[in-house]
Design a protein around this nucleic acid. Structure first.
Lengths: 409, 409
DNA sequence: CGTAGTTTGTTTATCGACGGCACAAAGCAA
DNA sequence: TTGCTTTGTGCCGTCGATAAACAAACTACG
């Protein structure tokens, strides 16, 4: 008696994760492409796709007429299941927070507008954040398989503490990841395995923005992606290597804010002068443009608005843009010499700078980097809305992208 | 009739490579440890070890009395086979070159002393290098399974051209890897597969030194290893991430020589002032110590000698050491902020600096790096002789470490 | 209009690496 | 001695994946 009928649906454990990742990032529109990308046979790719469909993660559009292709038998389109599970993503920032449900493919399914709730106690803030997310979940009626949080602070690994949550009035070293995890358990937010509470994945917001841009935005396809950007104050960096966030040995890599870009520049709290941090952030821009800075929280919006409306009319604005581009270019050149990225994506105020005068920025980088003359790194603005939020969702998806069978296989 | 006797010796394709790497780096002294490190069952580990023995790569010391262990059944020692295959490793530098045969475990089996042969034509130099290696091979009568070359120049990927072979009188952009491969074919130096010529793996000497130190020297066990060091002139860096050399998107990463460490310092050919390159190399040291620099080629030896003999007697030497340590510390702090390594290994002149006053260096780094106060990165001198040579051998071993069955399975 | 050619998808048989388990071996501790 | 602990091996099952043949769906072209 050999009734070993366990095959067929149990297939593809090893390549199941990579296959889901390919559909998730839009790099596998059909099973044929999936076959090539995974380097497996058509049989395997077909079985894997069937398994992912059975798990409710992707769809195969088999309707007659939906097939497409130039020659030979047409393909059926592979896509993320729009009715599939979601993750709870959240971002806290100086203005308050934002919670959202995010599906595979980085699609934001529902979002609760940012509520103002700056409070010195992280447990209270994260409690409200999770509560808002849980409400979204209940209203949507969808299955939740994880949760991720973006914070405006360096996050130490592997303990998940926030080292410098300057804008949140939290104490340095707050155990954000543990607190977030506890809040998720209190609100009974489930993780990938049914009926077990979600782990509270947490990371720095710019790091997560980088991850999101790499998978769904301006960083797609880059092997060594460098992301640099400002928030309201200061400058942060992130590196995505071979598709994974590089956070260094203890989560503190890419603290690029204190590269010297002007030996005679402003004094910085780090003790040096002319750091990237104080020379290319919104405050420095407003000063260079001769504008009175408004409330700290909206310095970034104020700078954006200024560049958008007065770049062509006010020469001081144009000069300020050029000054910041020169400083930023110097800093990026230093990073290019050390990291040798194949693409640079800029966020925050820096995004506006590259949008306004990308040629000047690229020229400065090429001129000041050692090997710049031969080639030159592409420097592009980021393209995703809410990239930190989408990045937080990526963090939550990761266990499933590593092993989709966690769902219930 | 089911005579499917193909099992048993064909076992362990997937874990064979990692297993060899563990024995190669000395992290698997017994099959029991191998079992734990690989995360497989004892049965698999045993079969894998037997396979590696059959391939002639490792030995299991089964002699009675050679077993050891605290409790329970004693273990037999696993070791690299001292009579196993070797690779041809070579290094070219300003003084000439050195060729060697290197066995698994980074053991130098035979070496030809450096001959002086600085010539403007890389093909001629590499021809002599390979000839010397081939002679060593013939004399030893051992099986050769690959070849690696270390050059004092940035090597561009994936084309393998030398971008700045300053000390070799070669033209920039020389196709070193191709030339090396051709010389190997001319001399009939075999690669891993029998009777097929070796590929001429080539990389920067400091990068290879870093790889060697990570696998067999001061960098063992580090996950994020930063190596910085000088040659005769200039400063180079290298990063080993999760056991693999990180060379950036085109082989040009870790060009750390042009970090600014003294805004008022010496002018550098890069256009800036006070670069790490010109502030912490042997020439800068000799100047700071008030010594007349000798012939450029031996500036490093001259500096070493000076530190060894006059550090305790001549206050100018001590001051020069401290000055360079302060400058180097500033540069390393910048790198720590960007890369967040868990260990730093110093080579060349920098090795002597950390040996003389490591405390001062660590203090400077901790003081100038953002998160230095909480922890502090271990900074240690390199420990291997001829680490670039051993690193070149690692490059040659790599295909076999990825799949030992290349040998003839 | 029909046939050839091309590419996609599925079915079936089989392979091979590894895990599980039972058992044997080799030392130490009473 | 008799346990106890740890190491090493033989046997079989299982699971992920391949290979190869077949089937399907469309284009190109005479």
């Amino acid at each position: 008696m050999t009734l070993t009928r366990t095959t067929k649906l149990e297939r593809g454990r090893g390549v199941l994760g990579p296959a889901l990742a390919l559909v998730h990032t839009g790099r596998a529109p059909t099973r044929a492409v999936l076959t090539a990308e995974l380097g497996v046979t058509r049989a395997t790719a077909g079985a894997v796709a069937a398994e992912l469909v059975a798990l409710g993660l992707i769809t195969v559009d088999s309707r007659p007429g939906a097939a497409f292709g130039a020659q030979g038998r047409p393909s059926h389109r592979l896509a993320v299941d729009p009715d599939g599970p979601v993750v709870l993503a959240a971002q806290v920032h100086a203005d308050g927070f934002r919670a959202a449900l995010v599906g595979l493919g980085g699609r934001i399914v529902a979002t609760a507008p940012g509520c103002t709730a700056v409070h010195a106690d992280p447990a209270q803030v994260l409690g409200e954040v999770v509560e808002a997310g849980a409400t979204l979940l209940r209203d949507s009626g969808r299955r939740c398989v994880g949760a991720g949080l973006a914070v405006p602070s360096a996050v130490a690994e592997p303990d998940g503490t926030a080292l410098n949550p300057l804008h949140l009035a939290w104490e340095a070293g707050a155990a954000v990841r543990d607190i977030f995890t506890r809040c998720l358990a209190d609100a009974a937010v489930p993780g990938p395995a049914p009926d077990t509470p979600a782990t509270g994945y947490t990371a720095n917001d710019l790091n997560l923005a980088a991850l999101a841009e790499h998978r769904h935005g301006a960083g797609r396809g880059a092997q060594h992606l460098l992301v640099v950007g400002t928030g309201h104050r200061g400058v942060g960096g992130a590196l995505v290597l071979d598709g994974r966030l590089h956070t260094g040995s203890s989560g503190l890599a890419l603290e690029v804010g204190h590269l010297t870009v002007d030996p005679d520049g402003r004094p910085c709290h780090c003790g040096s002068r002319g750091c990237l941090d104080v020379e290319t952030d919104p405050l420095a821009f407003l000063e260079a443009a001769g504008r009175e800075p408004g409330p700290a929280v909206s310095l970034l919006e104020q700078s954006w608005e200024l560049i958008r409306t007065e770049y062509d009319t006010d020469p001081r604005v144009r000069t300020a843009v050029e000054t910041l581009i020169d400083r930023l270019g110097l800093g990026l050149a230093g990073l290019v010499n050390i990291l040798n990225p194949d693409r640079i994506v800029l966020a925050g105020l820096h995004r506006a700078l590259v949008e306004r005068d990308g040629e000047r920025l690229r020229a400065v980088i090429a001129d000041r980097s050692l090997w710049g003359r031969s080639g030159g790194v592409p420097v592009v603005p980021c393209t995703l809305d809410h990239n930190s939020l989408v990045g937080a969702a990526e963090l939550a998806w990761q266990p499933l992208l590593d092993d989709p069978l966690l769902l219930g296989g």
